[in-house]
Design a protein around this nucleic acid. Structure first.
Lengths: 134, 134
DNA sequence: CAGTATCCGGCACGATACTG
DNA sequence: CAGTATCGTGCCGGATACTG
């Protein structure tokens, strides 16, 4: 059973982009695979409510303050999360996913599901490769 | 109109994995966003035929020999491409996508299509952000 | 032709200290 | 609380030279 991807369609969509748009698309997709981006986004989406910086840092286990700040700034800049600052002491900042981020996560979800359900195949492939190279 | 991702299901799938499996899943997905991986895989898939190293390097514009070699080794190790060496002088090596790689690409495709068709929204979001911060 | 080997700059990321 | 500032490390990826 052969699979078909419509590469003509894919290429058409890509060619239609100018250089700036192309690099931006690449940037968006690439960012998804950076170390904490997806996890952060997923926690915010799962909460389905505004979340404070400190709480987010608890849930995204292992992330440093610096990295979390950076990731959130990038996500905010790309319109994937909203950042609301409450003028009070001590300060309070709430983050939340936007509609467009949820759209994106819906497309990422099947990829993860597929990868995790096929993890056995990958382990087997590696074992075979390593044996061949041994 | 509210969107729903089945986070319960996602989490269930993740929890079911042991530590090794989890990190492998992460590795696979992460690799997809590395600089040349997806492009390489896409060229191989589009050709739908064995392709030589040099030809691949022409098509994946801008990749260095070193990077292409590394990417191909990783893909081979994970069972996403096959590598066939012909014992002749000058040497000839042919790469080709596997069935499982095509499955993966089918899941990645909609993500790219979505990102490129929404590139305008991202540009707008950035413009608004930069203006706010100006 | 299809790689290895080596050097190098940049930056992702962590740890720590400090601040409004 | 929610950051910034600074320092240090490791690795990604490019450039170049060499080899079976």
């Amino acid at each position: 059973m052969k699979r078909h991807i419509d590469w003509v369609e894919v290429n058409a969509a890509c060619e239609a982009l100018d250089e700036n748009e192309d690099s931006l698309t690449r940037e968006i997709v690439t960012r998804l695979a950076e170390k904490w981006t997806l996890w952060t986004l997923a926690e915010l989406a799962a909460a389905d409510a505004p979340m404070r910086f400190s709480r987010l840092m608890e849930r995204v286990e292992g992330v440093s303050q610096k990295s979390l700040t950076k990731v959130l700034r990038q996500l905010e800049r790309d319109g994937l999360v909203t950042r609301v600052v409450f003028a009070q002491v001590p300060p309070r900042v709430e983050y939340q996913t936007t509609e467009i981020a949820l759209e994106m996560l819906e497309l990422v979800h099947p990829l993860w599901a597929w990868a995790s359900s096929n993890v056995g195949k990958f382990q087997a492939a590696r074992a075979a490769y390593d044996k061949r190279r041994k």
